[in-house]
Amino acid sequence: MGSAPPSLELRGLTLHYEGHPLFAGLDLTVEAGRCTALLGASGVGKTSLLRIAAGLAAPDAGTVQASDGVPLRGRVAWMGQQDLLYPWARALENVTIGSRLRGEKPDKARAEELLNAVGLQGRERALPKELSGGMRQRVALARTLYENRPVVLMDEPFSALDAITRATMQELAATLLAGRTTLLITHDPLEACRLGHRLYVMAGRPARLEREIAVPGTPPRAPDDEELLHTQGLLMRALLKGRAT
């Protein structure tokens, strides 16, 4: 990562969808070196917000900046809802795909290390179709780590996995991504509670961020932690309330 990661500052973001504001004047600071979890129901505009932060879409108004003033381009890694592995590339090639796409020489040794770290040693030559959903998401995590960017944006990266695989992946991701400025969006209160240092609920139309919800302890929190379970309940309530309005 090199120098200390910056915080990510989203200021006054406004986006319209089919003539209606999805969010208007939205502010969010993603704290440096921490994981900020953004929780919201489907269709509230979470993914749009993340795409704007990733530079994949432009807002109607507002800015996304790094606290150190350096442009964000090339400093953001993105993990989507699907693993997005290229089916024609083997596991190792998928991990190093960023290098290939930029016309750089792939660092195979580091890619192998990362595949080891996510528990896929010996599967370097496997094609995506030969891997299970959980394994594919591990390759995607290794690919994200290979990019070695200070800022990581995650769009419900584990939502397609079964509950047990998801829990394992959450722990692995929290451990391996520790120290990076991470923005995680999710519709799963448990995931938000387990992974987020900071936690916000996004609700309403236009969507607003409700006040920060504090979860005691450091991520990845145990899924049976009592305080976590309590917060999870509160979050569920907040989400349901957001839905009704």
Binding site: L56, W78, G80, Q82, E147
Partner: peptide, 17 residues
Amino acid sequence: EPGWLDLAHTMGATRLS
């Protein structure tokens, strides 16, 4: 698949690549 293109974009791929 739009996700594949998004991923390549965030990785700094050129149009030709």
